[in-house]
Structure formats: C-alpha cells, structure tokens
C-alpha cells in the first residue's frame, strides 16, 4: 500500500461533491469535494506500490489539460489501470459540474 499526494492549479472552488467507483478489483473510488480557490489537491491511497510516476502522469493529463474547478480529491485504488483511473475521475467531474445529483 502506498500513499501519494499531488497538487494542480485550478479555477474557483467546485460547488458540490461527487463519488464515483468502488474499491473493487481493478477499480477505484474517487471522492471529490470543493477545494481552496486556485488549487486542486489529490490524495491517492493505492494497493500497488512504486507507481508514483504513472499516477503523476495520468493525473497531470486529466487535471492540468483543461481548467477545472478547485477540488479536494481522495482516491482509494485497488489496482485500476490508468484508463480506468481517468474515466472514474472524469465521471466524478461530470457529476460535479453536470446535472449531478449528490452522492
């Protein structure tokens, strides 16, 4: 098990919170809540060790590519592939910004 932390520049705080995924085999849970204006923080707990650089690359691609609302993100990962990670984070943001009902 390994714990990783990242920060990314962001817009104004997100307005709600969202949950996506489960901590099941090959999957992960993403909890997104409003963050402090201008910064998105990501705290990752993963069952797979030694993948810090992959996490950084995936999160940079998702969170730094387009300006997103400032969010406090918690990720609990059970061996998800980068593709699944990306989809779950996008799913959480879709719920945050879209019609999104609260989890």
């Amino acid at each position: 098990m390994e714990q990783l932390n990242f920060t990314f520049p962001a817009l104004d705080p997100a307005s709600g919170r969202a949950l996506a995924g489960v901590v099941g085999s090959g999957d992960l849970e993403v909890l997104a809540e409003p963050g402090a204006a201008g910064t998105t923080t990501v705290s990752v707990t993963t069952s797979v060790t030694g993948m810090g650089r992959v996490w950084e690359a995936v999160l940079t691609r998702v969170l730094a590519a387009t300006p997103l609302p400032a969010t406090k993100i918690e990720i609990n990962d059970f061996g998800a592939t980068p593709g699944v990670v990306r989809m779950r984070i996008e799913q959480a943001f879709e719920e945050l910004t879209g019609s999104g009902r609260e989890a």
């Binding site: 098990m1 919170r17 949950l19 489960v22 901590v23 849970e29 909890l31 809540e33 707990t45 993963t46 069952s47 918690e74 609990n76 990962d77 059970f78 989890a103």
Partner: peptide, 24 residues
C-alpha cells in the same frame, strides 16, 4: 437519503494497518 455516507469517512480503522485500502 444516505446516513453515515462516504463523505463522513467512517472507514475501517483496522485495514490500513494490514496494508488493505479502505473504502469511504
């Protein structure tokens, strides 16, 4: 209406010590 939902983060206090990832 969910009670003690994931954002309350009432997670298992025993799993992390055993190297198991918790769910919110």
């Amino acid at each position: 209406r969910e009670l003690i939902g994931p954002f309350d983060r009432l997670t298992s206090p025993w799993l992390a010590a055993q190297g198991v990832v918790t769910q919110a």
